[in-house]
Design a protein around this nucleic acid. Structure first.
Lengths: 232, 232
DNA sequence: CCAAAAGTGTTAAAGTTACACCCATGT
DNA sequence: ACATGGGTGTAACTTTAACACTTTTGG
């Protein structure tokens, strides 16, 4: 995870649920753990995160993790929830990996989870130290380390709630150019219901800030959709 | 705080923001720290809370704290947010009290805050070990220990947001019998705006679950208000 | 009889939902 | 020509907001 293990507080960690949208479905950025231990011996995929430094605030740690993963500072980061079940670090595979990575005996770790939304592009797949990051569809995840499947599920529920109040936050996940159908698919996934095409055009696509471009889809076997961009 | 100091994790604590409503204004339950140190030397008032036990889940600790304070199990408890600024335990008065109470060297403590709503009555003012609890109006608080003023303010903002979605949660705070005006005052404080009396009568007081009683206010120098009770 | 708060309906405005047809493109 | 998804407006309904007078009680 990091070199300076002595500056870690071995009781508290920060994990980031970084969500994106590829135009089709919601994706979460997962980290493949480095290869200190043969892959067969532990669950390889986890949320990007690490132990808290002893002199570091929680938000600071979350921003640092996200900056390391994406290569740039990203503003939309919201603390979501703490997880502290005594059994959350008891899976033997996880224990093995932790002790290898941290080089000290570990008890229960309380983790603080953060939600961040970002655009999916090549820069967000940078390597971070020994771990590689990749996007995975949130509704088809393999078993992850610790309680990270649970954390992602809870965070999605939170996203659904938040987006109901502030739908404009969803633009954080949209590509620079997008079609009305892509934006609608995202709204549908987040609200959990089908959205009427005409109502969507009226209520969302007409809002100021959504700017139609003189560009259209290419090579589709139906009428080409117009591209839009978003200006906050 | 507790006898078995060795079973505490000295890095993580749980604090509970317990809110009530006295018919006039929102109140928060605060704990007066025990007298191991002369009162002049530290801030006496704090949120009810303690260090996490090593084998204890976060929700478990929160429920235990609330049960100790109120003498009964209370269902509405929601984890709200974690606080971990390295400076949050640096006030000399707080350090003095902590070291006295816990009998060991303390670094930064990450605290997980919980929100709970409950009815104000005599049973919620029980003594808990060495600390006494009392209700204080949330908008007129003295300086509290650690960052507890900040935690209360953040929690109130969360309550305002939650109650906008689920107004029925506010009944947790209402006395067994209440008048329409009392319930309206609570809604006004939580929504932050004046609520029209007639609209309120129609939209809230007519809902099923709000049961008019054959009881009226006594000895008021104006038309007496009817009492209601709530049945979930 | 005066002051103070309780109680009680209607109307306009805004927002939300339901619904159907023609258009452009590739095969 | 046909299959596929893109693009467009209107009317009913629901929700929310604005608004004023009469009632009861104690002093």
């Amino acid at each position: 995870m990091d070199q300076e293990a002595l500056n870690f507080d071995p009781h508290v960690s920060v994990d980031c649920v970084i969500l994106g949208f590829d135009g089709e479905s919601l994706q979460v950025l997962l980290s493949r753990r480095g290869n200190e231990v043969p892959e067969e011996q532990y669950n390889n995929l986890k949320l990007p995160g690490r132990l808290l430094h002893t002199d570091e605030d929680l938000d600071e740690a979350a921003l640092d993790i996200i900056t390391n993963v994406t290569g740039k500072h990203h503003p939309l980061v919201k603390q979501f929830r703490a997880y502290g079940s005594p059994s959350r670090t008891s899976n033997p595979k996880d224990v093995l990996w932790l002790e290898n990575a941290i080089k000290q005996k570990i008890g229960r770790i309380v983790t603080i989870s953060y939600l961040s939304l970002m655009r999916i592009n090549s820069r967000t797949m940078l390597l971070n130290d020994s771990d590689a990051q990749l996007w995975y569809p949130v509704h088809d995840l393999p078993p992850l380390a610790f309680d990270h499947n649970q954390i992602i599920q809870d965070t999605l529920d939170e996203l659904y709630r938040m987006a109901g109040q502030q739908p404009q936050m969803l633009f954080e996940m949209m590509p620079a150019k997008f079609t009305a159908a892509q934006l609608r698919r995202l709204h549908e996934q987040v609200s959990g219901k089908k959205i009427d095409v005409r109502n969507f055009a009226k209520l969302v696509m007409n809002k100021p800030g959504i700017i139609p471009l003189d560009e259209w889809e290419q090579n589709v076997s139906h009428r080409a959709a117009r591209y839009y961009r978003f200006k906050p």
